[in-house]
Amino acid sequence: MTAAAAVVGIVLVSHSAAVAESVAALAAGLAAGGAVAPIAAAGGTADGGLGTNADRVVAAAREVDRGAGVVLLVDLGSSVLTVRALLVEGELPEGARLVDAPFLEGAVAAVVAASTGAPLDAVAAAATEAYDYRKS
């Protein structure tokens, strides 16, 4: 596969495994119609509780890395701080980026954009722009 054809990967990091997996399924479902970008859920702690599992985040990022970069969406607290710490320590694949975006809406926007083959900057921008969608 050439670099131009590579797709941006998406990682969803939540305190809850169920939330991460459900949002991943929702985003993939709403983006369906063509090829769907690789998505991985990294939710909950290693023992199935609420929290963040850094090793799972690293594994998820590697799993969806196709060489075009990886966008990470996070919920709050330890999810944010864990991804930031992993980025500082260089433990995530090259081109991995924490995006400032609403978790669910940002995930849908990122998966839709990435599935069109959009580059990293455009996928990250699509996720962040999800903040601009007002509901009332």
Binding site: A46, G51, T52, G77, S78, L81, T82, A85
Partner: peptide, 18 residues
């Protein structure tokens, strides 16, 4: 600590010590 704590204190104390 970053790998095992699970809460925000993991990356915070982990970063402090690293």
């Amino acid at each position: 600590l970053i790998s095992t704590v699970g809460g925000a204190s993991g990356p915070l104390y982990g970063t402090l010590l690293r």
